[in-house]
Simulated scan of single mutants.
Amino acid sequence: MTVARSLLLFVFAALAEIGGAWLVWQGVREGRGPLWIAGGVIALGAYGFAAAFQPDPDFGRILAAYGGVFIAGSLIWGMVMDGFRPDRWDVAGALICLAGVAVIMYAPRG
């Protein structure tokens, strides 16, 4: 259950951070206005809470692992929201990052 909870928190964090950054981008770069920017700021704030609920007590470990989740999540977000088409190297890099997340967060420690 702890791993499942951790994975769900990583998904939530990715959606909040990537979505928040995308909303700010849309508000500023695409001229959608201050409501989009405000929504992005709120989402980014929600992302800030996600790490606090991870079951692992080590902040550095959580944020390091989240970097890999962010990379893979950003590629997926780009595909869904912006029509980005990753090439095989993007996919390979994302899979390597996710393998790193698994090692950092879920390797047996004793």
Rank of each mutant, 00 (worst) to 15 (best):
residue 63 L to A: 09
residue 25 W to C: 00
residue 61 R to C: 05
residue 42 I to L: 09
residue 96 I to M: 05
residue 101 V to A: 00
residue 7 L to D: 06
residue 102 A to T: 15
residue 95 L to P: 07
residue 110 G to K: 14
residue 29 R to W: 10
residue 24 V to Y: 02
residue 102 A to G: 09
residue 62 I to C: 02
residue 7 L to N: 12
residue 56 D to T: 14
residue 36 W to F: 14
residue 36 W to T: 14
residue 68 G to I: 00
residue 109 R to F: 01
residue 82 D to R: 15
residue 55 P to R: 10
residue 105 M to C: 08
residue 70 F to V: 10
residue 33 G to Y: 00
residue 90 D to T: 00
residue 22 W to G: 05
residue 41 V to G: 10
residue 78 G to R: 03
residue 18 I to D: 00
residue 17 E to C: 03
residue 109 R to M: 11
residue 82 D to V: 14
residue 77 W to F: 07
residue 109 R to L: 10
residue 55 P to E: 10
residue 74 S to D: 08
residue 37 I to L: 00
residue 93 G to E: 02
residue 45 G to M: 11
residue 110 G to E: 14
residue 97 C to I: 06
residue 53 F to S: 12
residue 92 A to R: 04
residue 79 M to E: 06
residue 20 G to R: 09
residue 20 G to T: 11
residue 43 A to F: 03
residue 4 A to F: 10
residue 104 I to E: 11
residue 71 I to G: 03
residue 15 L to N: 12
residue 56 D to N: 15
residue 90 D to W: 03
residue 103 V to L: 09
residue 22 W to L: 10
residue 59 F to E: 13
residue 72 A to D: 06
residue 22 W to F: 10
residue 18 I to P: 00
residue 75 L to V: 11
residue 75 L to E: 02
residue 4 A to S: 12
residue 1 M to W: 00
residue 34 P to M: 15
residue 74 S to A: 12
residue 21 A to L: 07
residue 56 D to P: 08
residue 54 Q to G: 04
residue 64 A to I: 07
residue 3 V to G: 03
